[in-house]
Amino acid sequence: MTLSTVPRRDPEISPVLVRLSVDPVLFTLVNDRLHVLLRRRSWEPFAGWWALPGAINSANQQLKDTMLAELQRIGLGDIWVDQLKTFDRPPQYVDGTLAKPGRDPRGRVISVAYFGLVPAHRKLGPACDGELHWTPLDELPELAFDHLEIVQYALWRLRNKILYSSVAFQLLPPEFTLTGLQKAYELVLGENLDKRNFRRKVLDSGVVIETGSHTQNGTRRPARLYRFADRDFEFR
């Protein structure tokens, strides 16, 4: 899914000042594959490259507010999101000469990364800052800055968090099948799970509630639909 939007520009960055950027890594499930949201930059640096959606934090705005503003701009202001990590690789100078560039060619920019989960049924809203595209994780292009490193770290963090929390339910629509829930776990973890053991663990935990409704798949046997019970769940 792609949204063509009005090009944007980053504020001027002084090479002698430290600036902060907010870079959210947003995951969703599309056609039984884990995807991440990318934006094609239409401005320098890295014009024409794919990158994470994000923004330079203004001096009079809190980081979380900048992040929420970016999410609201693309219609995802109410999704689950958590702070990930700070990424900093400053440029190195020798005798006043640049010896090794930092993570941003404009100067020292520290990235405060977040990661969020977008339910499979959600659609992107009107955006105003670039071209947005859901990209399969196994087909990532070369990314601007150090955004590939950020995406890889976010995936590692998600794979760990999914084992001791109920965060996987944030990838699902309000009503789902146990097969759909298991598929979400498998796509995030990158491995197949035993169907019987998975269902027993989920049902015994009380983390799902049967809705009384069933799927309507034509000639296929209807499957029971469940909803999240809004409680903790440890899969490991």
Rank of each mutant, 00 (worst) to 15 (best):
P91D: 14
M67E: 14
L68W: 11
P91R: 07
L68E: 15
G102R: 00
G77Q: 12
A69V: 03
G75K: 13
D78L: 14
W80Y: 15
D104N: 11
Y93I: 00
K85L: 13
K85H: 15
I74V: 15
D95T: 06
L84T: 04
L84S: 10
D78W: 07
K85M: 11
L76F: 13
T97A: 14
A69L: 06
V94Y: 15
L76E: 11
P91G: 10
D104P: 05
V81T: 07
V81Y: 03
R73F: 01
D78K: 04
G75F: 14
G102Y: 01
D82A: 12
G102S: 07
D104V: 04
P101G: 06
Y93T: 00
G96C: 12
D82N: 06
E70K: 02
A69G: 09
L68D: 10
Q92E: 15
P90H: 10
Q83A: 09
T97P: 03
A99Y: 04
P90R: 08
K100G: 00
L76T: 06
T97W: 09
R73K: 09
V81Q: 03
I74E: 06
K85D: 13
M67K: 07
L68R: 11
R103W: 02
M67A: 09
P91M: 15
R89P: 00
Q92V: 08
P90W: 05
G75P: 14
V94H: 10
P101H: 05
R103H: 04
L76K: 05
Q72F: 12
V81E: 04
T97H: 13
P101C: 09
L98K: 04
G75A: 08
Q92K: 09
L68P: 03
D82I: 05
T86P: 00
K85Q: 11
L68F: 10
K100I: 00
L68A: 11
T97V: 15
D88Q: 11
F87I: 10
P101Y: 07
D78G: 08
E70P: 02
E70W: 00
W80I: 11
L98H: 03
I74P: 04
Y93Q: 02
R73Y: 02
D78V: 06
A99N: 12
R103Q: 04
I79K: 01
P101N: 08
D104H: 06
I79D: 01
V81L: 11
D104G: 04
K100V: 01
V81W: 02
D95N: 12
W80L: 15
Y93P: 01
R73P: 02
M67H: 07
Q83H: 13
R89N: 02
Q92R: 14
L76Q: 13
V81A: 12
F87P: 03
R73C: 03
L84E: 13
V94E: 14
I79Y: 00
T86D: 07
A69T: 05
V94K: 09
D88R: 10
G102V: 00
R89E: 01
L98Q: 06
Y93F: 15
Q92P: 07
E70F: 00
K100D: 01
T97E: 15
